[in-house]
Design a protein around this nucleic acid. Structure first.
Lengths: 100, 100
DNA sequence: ACTAAAGTTCGATAATATTCGAACTATGGG
DNA sequence: CCCATAGTTCGAATATTATCGAACTTTAGT
């Protein structure tokens, strides 16, 4: 598979990050990644279809929240925490740490 | 006009707050309210139709971000900062203070 | 009472999103 | 080479949303 497109920090847009995090599925993905450090797509589906998860991961990648690298047949995802923090200091922690 | 419905803090939902703030018009409203303290609907339209603004203010009210009280014929809006802070500490500052 | 001011509500339109099945792609193992 | 695994992409159905004009409501002023 061809490598994924990850936007540079300079293209991060606050509203788009907030939008990406406003979906319960995606917010959960981000929270789990914050805990685990990294995880494959399959580890984070809650029984949801792969195509649905693929959709959400793509949105998270597109806004700059998640980095995905291919290792064998699995896609390893991690938070781009340092990048997000550098562009929007304190934002990610303030959101992820809230108890829902 | 009958008074507006403002949800109690216990009904605040993180994802819905994030969604409300993911719209550029609404984020701008919230930022201006954070600066000004309070403002009427008319003061914050950027030339946009009243019905459009009314729509956005309703969403901000519904998620608990904005309080609206009727004074004469104008609706005075203010941030429910203390309420939001009590439910989601640090969230509002972390978002509003970011430079877009 | 008449009128203007300030918003709200309604209705329609156009744009976006979410979800998921089905088909497809690439990698690794036997 | 065959096959299972892990995801992606495509397409379609459904649902939400944003925007705005038009009509309506309430309050204040004269």
């Amino acid at each position: 598979m061809r490598p994924f497109k990850h936007p540079p920090v300079s293209e991060f847009v606050l509203e788009r990050l907030l939008y990406a995090l406003s979906d319960p599925v995606r917010l959960d993905i981000v929270r789990r990644l914050a805990e685990l450090g990294e995880a494959s797509c399959g580890e984070l589906d809650g029984g949801r279809p792969k195509s649905t998860m693929s959709h959400h991961f793509r949105i998270l990648r597109d806004v700059g929240l998640v980095h995905t690298q291919t290792i064998g047949t699995t896609h390893m995802n991690s938070l781009r925490k340092a990048d997000v923090d550098s562009r929007f200091p304190g934002l990610l922690d303030a959101i992820v740490s809230q108890q829902s």
